[in-house]
Amino acid sequence: MNRWNDRLLRGRVVAILVAAAALLTTLVAGAQSGGKDGSTAQPPSPAWELPPGSPELIRPAELAKALSSMGTKAIVFNVGPRVIYLQAHIPGTEYMGPAANPDGLEKLRARAASLPRDSFLVIYCGCCPWEHCPNVRPAYKELKQMGFTRLKVLYIANSFGTDWVEKGYPTAKGE
């Protein structure tokens, strides 16, 4: 009986050690990949509008999860360049045009005007690294001034390709 208990104990110790090694290997590889949604890519300054970590921001992993859950009804606006949108965008996105341009901002304003102010709105661009994006901040400011209370901006640290498409989140292409 004791011999049986010893063998059982030894087996359990081996299993725990192997599992720990496997977990460690996975964690190291995960750290090298830079995190699921670019969370390790920290822009160098917190001084911009909508700095990383702002409560107004939503990370790609969170948005993908929210959009895939049956209970979440979000209205998603792309406020970036058309050529990038046509190649890949979040399914269900409504294209508004670059919010840095008066035409894009006007289209966004007109589309949002009829929406209830408690709608769950998400805006995104992903044209360039976050701190250089010329589109998300004017779009955010406009919608905030219109009184939207459940407004989120998708935090894309590097680009839509790197932080959404290459992470394997759902995409659509074309109009």
Partner: peptide, 18 residues
């Protein structure tokens, strides 16, 4: 134990490939 080790290896290889 073998199963857990194999899963860990697969996960590590997948992440490396990414």
């Amino acid at each position: 134990a073998v199963f857990i080790a194999a899963m860990g290896l697969v996960a590590a290889l997948y992440l490396q490939r990414r």
